[in-house]
Design a protein around this nucleic acid. Structure first.
Lengths: 93, 93, 93, 93
DNA sequence: TGCATATTACACACCC
DNA sequence: GGGTGTGTAATATGCA
């Protein structure tokens, strides 16, 4: 398996060593980022916990966050549509 | 609604203003963290894209990442089981 | 609502009655299955209770079950990864 | 580990062998039930798939199932409350 | 576009 | 009985 070429496209070098090293590097970059992501998820939970400790209900808070996000996306879509129309009628931004 | 007390526990102040401000602060902290999390998710996708551009298949890479994570979790669970056993037979930590 | 077409695709018949009857039938099949599932969940709880009554700790038992399941899944994933590799290097199944 | 007594209460026998066998039996009973439960979950998914193939939206169907379940529970709770009241005022069922 | 998977929201079970 | 953690259900996302 070590000498097998994992790449589906043409190998730019004459050994699997380099390919393996690059793959490993990519994998580790992903894992590092995943860890950071996980840490942020924990931070978020901590905020909810802290809020709960001061008397706010996380469940409702999540609802609020979700609603605000939906509003944002809706606004952004409307904005994009607007710009599309403006471009269509020759109004530069 | 503006004067209603959103908190389930006793209000430590005489107005909903303060409570609302605190809630808003929590919400915004969550939203900030969510944004960072989203950015990381994009970074991860970028890594996969970059890897793909050099010839690695994201599908296989994801499997590898997933497998390594499973290994890690399994090890952690085994450790927990061991500690559970030790606790059950009265061996203090 | 009664005459509205609940189906997203074209209605193959001239009334909502049939559509409603089919929907009801699906719903009831789901509910029946959900009931059976719930009964099984209760059976499982009963086993843990019985085990506990004879001196085994459910917490540890759950860990064991979980660990064995993890082993199984890990093995399956490794197999999938292997097949993925084989496919990637052109080895037909 | 093999001779360690996993039971927290007094061992009714002079060896861990029997205890281990009983534990294994409990574990396997749980696993068997879990498998059946999983099979039912798949059956349910199949029903939704089949419904979807005939034009019904699973998302809405799930909502309906959930609502009917809530109604059922609500009714049952009201019934229990009613019986409680009746018992309280001496009205036998 | 449909399927598979990853993430998120929820509910139940255990512990204190 | 209230909080915590685990496990499951639902949704959202990415791939074929």
């Amino acid at each position: 398996m070590t000498s097998a070429n994992l790449q589906t496209k043409e190998a730019p070098d004459n050994s699997g060593e380099v390919s393996g090293a690059r793959l490993k590097s990519f994998i580790e970059r992903v894992e590092r980022l995943e860890e950071e992501k996980k840490a942020l998820a924990e931070d978020i939970r901590d905020v909810y916990s802290e809020a709960k400790a001061t008397g706010f209900e996380p469940k409702i808070m999540r609802k609020i966050v979700s609603l605000r996000k939906a509003n944002l996306e809706k606004r952004r879509e409307e904005q994009e549509l607007l710009e599309l129309y403006m471009a269509a009628i020759g109004m530069a931004e």
